[in-house]
Amino acid sequence: MKKQLLIELFAALLIILFLYTSVSKFIDFRQFIGAMGNQPLPAQVKPLLVWIVPVSEVLISLALLSEYTRLAGFWASLTLMSFYTIYTLTVLLHFFKYIPCSCGGIIKSLSWKQHLYFNLFFTGVALAGIYLQRSRKKQHTILHLKKQIV
């Protein structure tokens, strides 16, 4: 019961984050295109990323909503948050001359160091979600087998 509550809480936190950032990008799409256009990435991938990033955030939120796709949603969250964390680290380690923030909403007002802590926190949430969801699945399987034996 407690485990289930934690899973719901972690999924809800990630849903809030991804819906907030994706909707913010879509609301201010022109600004987002401009910010993405100046990222130190190959020019060919930028027009694709402008769509891939916010759409994948919406898709991850949808996956986290349903119990059947939640584990996949947690894995996708971990992957995306890991990318963001690595990117933030490269900025902090001065890999690039300058990097404009292309994140959505009020998150863009965070400093890069705060950004790193923020990303690490949500990476941790996704990791904890995977762990809890997997252990819950295991428990269910054991219970199911026990019932079959009895």
Binding site: A12, I15, Y20, S22, V23, S24, G105
Partner: peptide, 15 residues
């Protein structure tokens, strides 16, 4: 979950 959706989408518009 509905509350989480509301917070995410509503927060984006509010900010």
């Amino acid at each position: 979950m509905a509350f989480a959706i509301f917070l995410g989408v509503g927060g984006a518009f509010a900010s």
